[in-house]
């Protein structure tokens, strides 16, 4: 059986066209989501912070951690991820409301993922990790560290408590904590 070179070339051309079509479909889907739905990876925000002093001054001091609501009603959650705990270990967010998570690490690289959502980012010392999203599902959702950070990594987890908007009531200091009911 002789090798039919034109036939082979034709087959390869058809396969190449199919692969270009597949790549175009996949890339178009990603561009559509990025442009049409404003879906961008957390890395689009590059903001530096001094990991050695973040607990002493600035927005990540202990009193300022957790969920806060500013005068315009914007909900911001600030969390420090450190070996081997989240501070705070539980945060409250209102359902179907735009929220901004801001995280920083004073020691090593950590990472967070909120189960059942697209919230997923690394927390690198020296940088503030920021994720904007909405939580749709009511209830307590697990937020573990997903970047191996040391021997206690498997014990490092936190919870996101999603409550109905009506139950999300900031206190006098415009803060909401898991302890408050």
């Amino acid at each position: 059986m002789a090798v039919d070179e034109p036939s082979v070339a034709r087959s390869e051309k058809h396969w190449a066209i199919a692969m270009v079509a597949v790549s175009t479909v996949l890339l178009s889907s990603i561009v559509y989501a990025a442009v049409g739905m404003h879906l961008r990876p957390p890395s689009n925000n590059v903001e530096t912070i001094d990991p050695a002093t973040l607990h002493v001054s600035g927005e990540f001091v202990e009193d300022n951690l957790g969920t806060s609501v500013d005068s315009k009603g914007n909900v911001t959650i600030r969390v420090v991820t450190a070996q081997f705990a989240f501070q705070p270990a539980c945060v409250v967010v209102p359902q179907d409301t735009p929220v901004t998570l801001r995280l920083a690490s004073p020691d090593v690289i950590h990472g967070i993922i909120v189960v059942g959502t697209n919230v997923n980012t690394m927390v690198v010392p020296g940088y503030v990790s920021q994720v904007r999203t909405r939580f749709h599902q009511l209830g307590e959702q697990l937020m573990p560290c997903h970047e191996f950070c040391g021997l206690g990594h498997s014990q490092m987890l936190a919870h996101v408590r999603v409550v109905p908007k009506a139950d999300f009531k900031p206190d006098a200091e415009r803060r909401v904590t898991c302890a408050a009911k």
Partner: peptide, 17 residues
């Protein structure tokens, strides 16, 4: 499978950014 995960799972969970 990629398109199903992307459109039916990833995008339905809502945007992040």
């Amino acid at each position: 499978a990629w398109l199903a995960v992307y459109f039916l799972l990833f995008l339905t969970r809502g945007p992040v950014g």
